[in-house]
Amino acid sequence: MTTTATAAAPSSGLETGTPRRGVLSKIVDRLGSGVVQVVMVLLGLFWLVPTLGLLVVSMRTTEVNNAEGWWTIFTKPAELTLQSYQGLLAGGFTASFWNTVLITVPTTVLVIGIAAMAAYAFAWMDFPGRDGAFLVVVGLLIVPIQIALIPIAVIYGNVGIFGSILGVVLFHTAFGLPFAIFLLRNFFVGIPASLLEAARMDGAPEWKIFVSVVFPLGKPAIASLGIFQFLWVWNDMLIALVFADSGNQPMTKYLQSQMRQFGSNMDILSSGAFLSLIIPLVLFFAFQRYFVQGMMAGSVK
């Protein structure tokens, strides 16, 4: 922690500590902020460069990649090519992309719908054992998914959905629910009681209040949940490894199967990894506000 603070306050120790700031302390501040600027630029590069490297590698031929590092692009620009991407899309990657979509979209819709109903009940309905039941949900927030891999594999084997997309979707949905219910319930509780009471006074049925009052008012929280859930499922590898067979495998599992020959499959791996992160990045930049809100609200996960 000591190093933290030293770095955090570069001008500390040099400042007089008096409320009056002399010329000298202003100069020191300027210098300090210059150092901070440089350090921050370097740190930013440190975070950006690895991904940039992946992009460059994916756009060069295997021969060039084997001969020299991707950073030589700056000194002697080798010809960039989409060859790797053509090879990738001609192989099994395209099917795995659609599998990822087929897994992610239904899961996100199911989690939002089912969790919103439960969250509404937890927030605005009275029933025996409500608080205890909600504490169970809070407890389930951090259950490791490893606990369910074996039991659910046995069940899926008996029912006959092992390896199917349905099985993967249901598993994701169940494990997305605790976080989703937690997030939405805490939001719904903040809806003004007068709005709900007015609707109930008018004799509106609960499902109608849910659809026309709670759901529209909950949009910000639902957007946060949606983006978070989408990315979580899109990026998952473990559940896919266990429950998706090779015909139904998403991108992560397909790319993992190419890892064994890392060197010789570099073209497929780099281009595939880059394509797999395009959609999450676009979503992230478009909805970063909701993403951050969802993350903050669910930081126990």
Binding site: T51, G53, L54, W234, N235, A273, L277, P280, F284
Partner: peptide, 14 residues
């Protein structure tokens, strides 16, 4: 913050 949106699989390849 960007790596948070990326799959750990892709981060692993990186």
């Amino acid at each position: 913050f960007m790596p948070m949106a990326v799959s750990l699989m892709a981060a692993g390849v990186v």
